[in-house]
Design a protein around this nucleic acid. Structure first.
Length: 129
DNA sequence: GCCATGACGTTCC
DNA sequence: GGGAACGCCATGG
């Protein structure tokens, strides 16, 4: 297995309980800025007997990256709620509050970037139908 | 070895 | 503030 994966898993394990991190941040901490997609790929490749808190990893918009009806999304949301992470009315997590590491989320930068990401997955999947 | 895909992100309009 | 386009890295066919 590639060192990146190990780095990624190691970083994810460092996420404190009750906090969340974005794929981009994970990729950056793992030493591969811009490899956010790879982070998702690595997490999807997690074995069943893993000790990695994958549910603490979300996208830059502070939302679950799965389809809303997907059981994994429900599970992830439930696990986060259990740890004290609160979801905003829009279904997004306030990264300025729960984001980890805190210094990585200078609320200013994260302002208008929230909107962009979410629609992409819909486009990819929605286009197939 | 090239092409397509994906738990994403940043920039431009 | 919302939507569309381009770029990113690794994997699978």
């Amino acid at each position: 297995m590639n060192p990146f994966y190990h780095r990624i898993y190691r970083v994810v394990r460092h996420i404190p309980k009750g906090r969340v991190a974005t794929y981009g941040i994970i990729a950056r901490l793992a030493g591969r800025p811009g490899a956010a997609r790879t982070v998702g790929w690595a997490l999807s490749a997690l074995p069943e007997d893993n000790d990695v808190p994958w549910w603490r990893v979300i996208n830059a918009a502070g939302r679950i990256s799965f389809s809303g009806q997907d059981h994994s999304a429900v599970l992830q949301r439930a696990l986060l709620l259990r740890e004290g992470v609160r979801f905003a009315p829009g279904g997004a997590v306030n990264l300025g509050t729960f984001g980890w590491p805190s210094e990585a989320y200078d609320s200013a930068v994260a302002s208008h970037k929230r909107a962009a990401s979410t629609r992409r997955s819909r486009r990819l999947k929605g286009l197939r139908t």
